[in-house]
Amino acid sequence: MTVLFIVLPLAVLLSLLAALAFVWATRCGQFDDLDTPAVRLLCDDLGERPRSPSQHPSRSPP
């Protein structure tokens, strides 16, 4: 059971590392916007290939 004197601080150290990682992620802005990334995901997998402009010859930009 004396191993507890080593394991317990070790476990605390591990969770300290996790907490630090969390703080780092927060500082990087990972949690700043919780709405848009979910929406962006829906957008990206839909038809991304460019269409040929000739499909709309009369509506081409100036």
Binding site: C43, L46, G47, R49, P50, R51, S52, P53, Q55, H56, R59, S60, P61, P62
Partner: peptide, 19 residues
Amino acid sequence: CELAYGIIHGAGLGAYYER
């Protein structure tokens, strides 16, 4: 609106309307 439509289509982004 016609201009906006033309720009969107010209850049190959016509999928906007379907979406």
